[in-house]
Design a protein around this nucleic acid. Structure first.
Lengths: 235, 235
DNA sequence: TAGATTGTTAATCGATTAACAATC
DNA sequence: TAGATTGTTAATCGATTAACAATC
């Protein structure tokens, strides 16, 4: 794809920056860069160097430049990358700025916390409606929402063409609920139940496994404690 | 190597299965295997093959065997891996079975949901106490907890030798709260604030960035939609 | 100009897969 | 025994880092 020397500095040709092929670790770094840039912007820094970013991220500076290049962010020699461009481009590329409709299923502890979480709206997530199978919860108010009965879920999905479901139900009913959602046309499930969902090929699932997060944290703490005693083993 | 019942492989020498050097992606797979094994156990399956696990995880079966080997789980030819051994070994290796004390800072929406979340206790996390800077929240009950004022936090950390803090405060005070915790001796921070914390070297941080989770999900949904139109590009 | 920083190509490293032997 | 499955060594692949040229 390279040649004719071309590359007119990323103008016309590249109709859309190939969002599709960013590897997962790069995505995580970019999301972190987004947060860092927002903070830096608030502190009045108008540009950030790859060295600065790489130190915070704990990776080589070259990698930061590659990541930036991969989403079309160009920097200026002797200056760095524009904080504003980082924020703007990443919000676009990561899809944070476009609205996505979702239904939320399960209004227990975590579910209702998510409904109240102001951060999502900032990131373009629009929770169309919240549902619960428990009739005692139906019609209760949580934040700006009124909990609807599951029977209404189907028509909401159809009417608003909802592709995403946030699944916050107990583990023992998570699979059947997921099956049900998939049959109704949901294409992506953000799963907060501590269970591994089986879904048909083509359905996107992200497991937000808090227990794994905990395991990772404890694991790293333990490793650090070991290193401190034994032979430091830096890096 | 079976014999004397005992399985003398992996006894003496290997004082402790080298927990320290499991790469991050392997850790995530192992945590998933743990969940899968628990489900399989409930369904009455006493053994799982690497093929079965690999299909669910979407990786090569060899990799599953390597992962198992890396934590000392041995399988039986023609049978597979013992569901019970998978669960037991992983709980031990991932530190899910040992108690870890933590303080929770910030009893807003997500914070109080975490306090009520029954899953943590199962995974060995013991939230020693919950704190909030807002005097209106102090003394309120959430689940089994009574919210304490921040002034009490220091002595709780000291008394119980707490190494882990769960940080669930608004983004704009997250950094200063983290600094404060580190000064009081906290070694690991599980950060739910959507901000990148700067901490001294040696302090372990895990960012539980829900916005990133959302971005990842939307990104993959978008990619899938693209693939469906354009050249399928399987895999 | 000199110097700092980006951008890119080549080298390295680590993780995954392929091939095949070992085992029950 | 034959066959299924584990376990391990070698090959591949992809991500990261190193080296260096390009640019302001």
């Amino acid at each position: 794809m390279p040649n004719t020397g071309v590359k007119r500095e990323s103008e016309g040709a590249r109709t859309q920056i190939s969002i599709a092929n960013i590897p997962k670790p790069a995505l995580e770094r970019l999301a972190q860069c987004h947060q860092i840039a927002i903070r830096a912007g608030e502190d009045g820094n108008e540009s950030l160097s790859s060295v600065y970013l790489s130190q915070i991220l704990g990776v080589d500076e070259t990698l930061v430049r590659k990541d930036m290049a991969s989403v079309g962010i160009v920097g200026k020699p002797r200056v760095g990358y524009s904080t504003g461009q980082i924020i703007g481009t990443l919000e676009e590329t990561l899809g944070l700025s476009q609205h996505t409709d979702a239904v939320l299923i399960g209004c227990g502890g975590i579910g209702s916390a998510l409904l109240r979480y102001p951060g999502f709206r900032k990131y373009g997530l629009r929770i169309t409606a919240a549902f619960d199978a428990d009739f005692n919860k139906v019609n209760q108010h949580i934040g700006d929402y009124v909990i609807l009965p599951m029977e209404k879920c189907r028509s909401v999905i159809n009417t608003f063409r909802v592709q995403v479901a946030i699944l916050v139900v107990p583990a023992d009913v998570a699979q059947e609920t997921a099956d049900w959602l998939v049959r109704r046309g949901v294409q992506a499930i953000w799963n907060f139940a501590p269970i591994h969902l089986k879904v048909p090929e083509g359905i996107v699932v992200r497991n937000e496994n808090l227990a794994l997060g905990l395991a990772d944290l404890i694991h790293r703490l333990k490793r650090r404690n070991l290193e401190e005693e034994g032979g430091i083993q830096t890096k």
